[in-house]
Write a protein that binds this DNA or RNA. Structure first.
Length: 877
RNA sequence: GGGUGCAUAGCUCAGCGGUAGAGCGCCGCCCUUACAAGGCGGAUGUCGGCGGUUCGAACCCGUCUGCACCCACCA
């Protein structure tokens, strides 16, 4: 196909134009462009600048992570925001970094150790942590390279990691402050425990799903003093310390206060009355296991019941007796079997669907467990976090999602922040030989002397990421960065992470920064889904690697597709078809610019006066300014889909399909000065490329730097609506478009081929276009009505009258029928063959010559051509 | 159990009080020298059902049905 893309001879300053290939090749363009941007320091923000700041901190991806479509989506939007603000004259900072991701990273390294037949305990704490750092060095942060590939305009000189020295200092500082303020405390409570990760996890790290269990009803006690309870976790009965019934439940009134025998043990337990019990549910009696169930724990507190732990940290039964050493699930069946043998199982229901908590990291069934942990007292912090949104200091986009935020911050339980891991920020508390507890601040030495030990636990990963908006800027030091760039402007992230991260940044930001909120706007995005709206996840087969798509179609195509799907708060379905469509758009822009360059479009000098402009010019400039205003409004409202769609249609439908096509008649006119059109076309492209740059940075940069003498779009000035409008020109062009479209439709209906010239008379007296008769004739492919002209049809449209001679029209249906018969092909076959080759129209002419012509042009249709050639050769005569 | 959102063309979705839209797909014609990753033309919808408000409803209100998602102490 390259043999017929010979560049036309070139003249003038834009000979580079013709060096542009006919197709956009992202792979060749994107890498070098990104390197150039970084080398020139375009993304490095200057804290000493006079420009107003615009700051976004990236939601730090896990150090273990790779770029998935969700990142690609959010990064595209954040990049678009910062790129646009930079062009608008802000000192724009998009700050990158990564999260140390406690459990995830520790799991990765433990897996590595397991492959070597070792556990972390074989190494010991210090060596293990060293090993994790080594792992990070070697395998961590792959996502950073992938972000470059996407085109993320982040300030690499400010890259941060949550375990950096500076950020660790921030963690210690705030821990100490919270501790001293009494907002951090240690307490024994029921927590969610993962028996595989061997650590506590917070409520939001638990994923609930419907599991099929078995609900058994067990008779406790004997005779009249017996009571039936139901459970799905029979093994916990070993730790029962009471049975609870509703205080007003008459069925059990006689039992309240009595003790009954607990089966399989030699213990007796009391029957207590507690209004938490729902008399309607089951038998209306509940077994109470304070050490293994949060509700039961609460009942235990109210009735002063002992808590009996029956399992160790791995979920293995520790109670002496026949079940000791059994895993919790083995113990469950064993205990049910034993009870059944004693005739104590009075009813079973299996499968019984109920929701069961799983560790969000490893999917292991969570075991509620009584344990000593560190907690943040969130009430005062959460109140402030709620108020900041309530009184409008922080806006949530889209506003509907604010309710979700309030639901959370207004009903937040205390936050369990200690994790029984080695990888993370170690809790800065030391215990003395006589039970003293000392919290050690960042500049303090741990207490000296014998017998002092540091707490073994580390902090929840979200504790350090909650400090991200200011710890990354140097807090607790009073740095220039902090002064310039805090508070940040927009926090853009998925709505699924409101509780994990957003609310915590709000709490910590307001607390640490003296009530100064960490950002003004929370922009919440939906989740990326596949083309049928199904959730994409790493474990799903529908999951797509955005890198594959970037390789195949370019980063801009992926970005544009994502931006175009980004309706505020709504999920984004994405399929390969749409990425292809975006790729096509990039290619379209490429070729339109190529056309402009070949025809000498220029951005030099001022725009010609309105008096010099044609109606077409005035129309497109009027539209251009309208689009600038509309695009601005959409970008400002985080309506990326609207902005993208608007620009897509303006560029393709109006600029490329009409303005450029209409310009051709000017450029082809010959002799007539084309400077005005060259300048206007240059202007329109210049502005359109700028408007698209935030979402399609690569192709726009490549084209713009070719079209203009500018250094880079990244640092150029964002277009402004000049206020220029011309309604008369818009109306006139509407007439032209209507006229042309109607005539084309008529021609198609009559069987005239698109390029076929038809003799016709044209009366434009009713349209105001009389002066442009020649141009209109060209558009409509009308030739002058010569001698002997006989109109066979007359078409009144848009105030004009067109009379045509249709004698040259082809009856396509009849042609097809004839060919089908002649070639001995089934009609369907013919269609398939001709679809790639061309069509019946020209096959009707000279077959040999036609096939020749096609062969030269269509390498991809080789097979079909061969077959058709054979068919044609075998035709008799 | 509580809450939120959604039901519009074959698919995925915009539109949110005034003549039904986009992308992809589909049909027909075409290489007209920027682009076949293209051009031109075309078809397709009782805007989930039923009521109501209005001169006028895909859009507002009520209700029903179906589907998503979020939250919660489902023994």
């Amino acid at each position: 196909m390259t043999e017929n893309t010979q560049p036309p001879a070139t003249t003038g300053p834009h000979s580079a134009a013709t060096e542009l290939p006919t197709q956009y090749a992202p792979a060749e363009v994107e890498g070098p462009l990104y390197e150039r941007w970084v080398e020139r320091g375009y993304f490095e923000a200057d804290a000493a600048s006079d420009k107003p700041p615009y700051t976004i901190v990236i939601p730090p991806p896990n150090v273990t992570g790779t770029l998935h479509l969700g990142h690609a989506f959010q990064h595209t939007l954040m990049d678009a925001l910062t790129r646009r603000k930079r062009m608008q004259g802000y000192e724009a900072l998009w700050l990158p970094g990564m999260d140390h991701a406690g459990i995830a990273t520790q799991n990765k390294v433990e897996q590595q150790l397991a492959d070597e037949g070792k556990s972390r305990h074989d190494l010991g704490r210090e060596e293990f942590v060293e090993r994790v750092w080594k792992w990070k060095q070697e395998y961590g942060g792959r996502i950073l390279g992938q972000m470059r590939r996407l085109g993320d305009g982040v300030d690499w000189s400010r890259e941060r990691f949550t375990m950096d020295e500076g950020l660790s200092r921030a963690v210690l500082t705030i821990f100490k402050r919270l501790f001293d303020d009494g907002l951090i405390y240690r307490a024994e409570r029921i927590i969610n425990w993962c028996p595989r990760c061997l650590t506590a996890i917070s409520d939001i790290e638990v994923d609930y799903q419907e599991d099929a269990g078995e609900l058994v009803s067990i008779r406790y006690g004997e005779g009249d003093d017996s009571i039936v309870v139901a459970t799905t976790r029979a093994e916990t009965m070993l730790g029962d310390t009471a049975v609870a019934v509703h205080p007003e439940d008459e069925r059990y009134a006689h039992l309240i206060g009595k003790r009954i025998k607990l089966p399989l043990t030699d213990r007796t337990i009391p029957v207590v009355a507690d209004s938490h019990v729902d008399p309607e549910f089951g038998t209306g009696a509940v077994k109470v296991t304070p050490a293994h169930d949060p509700n039961d724990f609460a009942i235990g507190q109210r009735h002063d019941l002992p808590s009996l732990s029956v399992m160790d940290e791995r979920g293995v039964i520790t109670v002496h007796g026949p079940f000791e050493g059994l895993d919790r699930f083995e113990a469950r069946s064993a205990i049910v079997a034993a009870l059944r043998e004693q005739g104590r199982i009075v009813a079973e229901k299996r499968p019984y669907l109920h929701s069961v908590g799983h560790c969000s990291r490893c999917k292991t069934t969570v075991e509620p467990r009584l344990s000593m942990q560190w907690w943040v007292k969130v009430e005062p912090l959460a109140k402030a976090a709620g108020d900041a949104v309530r009184d409008g200091r922080v806006a949530i986009h889209p506003p509907e999602l604010a309710k979700r935020y309030f639901d959370w911050v207004d009903n937040m339980h205390d936050w369990c922040i200690s994790r029984q891991l080695w990888w993370g920020h170690r809790i800065p508390v030391w215990y003395g030989p006589d039970g003293e507890t000392v919290c050690v601040g960042p500049d303090e030495q741990p207490p000296a002397g014998e017998g002092w030990t540091q707490d073994q636990d580390v902090l929840d990963t979200w504790f350090s990421s909650g400090l991200w908006p200011f710890s990354t800027l140097g807090w607790p030091e009073n740095t220039k960065d902090l002064e310039k760039f805090y508070p940040t402007d927009v926090l853009l992230t998925g709505h699924d992470i409101i509780f994990f991260w957003v609310a915590r940044m709000m709490m910590f930001g307001l607390y640490a920064m003296d009530g100064k909120e960490p950002f003004h706007t929370i922009a919440l995005t939906g989740l990326v889904r596949d083309e049928h709206g199904k959730k994409m996840s790493k474990s799903n087969p529908n999951s797509v690697d955005p890198l594959d798509w970037m390789d195949a179609y370019g980063a801009d195509a992926v970005r544009f597709t994502l931006a175009r799907g980004a309706n505020p708060g709504a999920d984004v379905p994405i399929g390969e078809d749409w990425v292809q469509a975006s790729r096509n758009f990039a290619n379209k822009i490429w070729n339109a610019t190529r056309f402009a360059l070949i025809n000498g479009a220029t951005v030099e000098g001022p725009l010609p006066d309105a008096a010099e402009l044609s109606a077409t010019d005035r129309w497109i400039l009027s539209r251009l300014n309208t689009v600038v205003a509309e695009a601005d409004a959409a970008y400002d409202g985080y309506e990326f889909a609207k902005a993208s769609d608007l620009l897509f249609h303006f560029a393709w439908d109006e600029v490329f399909d009409w303005y450029v096509e209409l310009s051709k008649t000017v450029f082809a006119a010959g002799g007539r000065p084309a400077e005005v059109s060259q300048r206007v076309l240059g202007e329109v492209l210049d502005v359109t490329l700028k408007l698209l740059h935030p979402v399609m940075p690569f192709v726009t940069e490549e084209l713009w730097t070719t079209l203009t003498d500018g250094e880079s779009l990244v640092i150029t000035t964002w277009p402004q609506d000049s206020g220029y409008r011309d309604e008369a020109a818009e109306a006139e062009l509407a007439t032209v478009r209507k006229l042309v479209t109607e005539v084309r439709r008529f021609r198609a209906d009559q069987g005239l081929q698109p390029g076929q010239r038809v003799p016709a008379t044209l009366d434009l007296s009713g349209t105001g276009l009389a002066a442009h008769e020649e141009a209109v004739r060209q558009l409509l492919r009308l030739t002058p009505a010569g001698d002997g002209f006989a109109a066979t049809a007359s078409l009144p449209v848009a105030g004009a009258v067109v009379a045509l001679d249709l004698s040259g029209a082809i009856d396509f249906a009849a042609e097809r029928k004839r060919l089908t018969k002649d070639l001995g092909l089934a009609e369907k076959e013919l269609k398939q063959a001709t679809a790639k080759l061309g069509n019946e129209g020209f096959l009707a002419k000279a077959p040999a010559e036609v096939v020749e012509k096609i062969k030269a042009r269509k390498a991809t249709a080789e097979a079909d051509i061969d077959r058709l050639t054979t068919q044609l050769a075998n035709l008799p005569g």
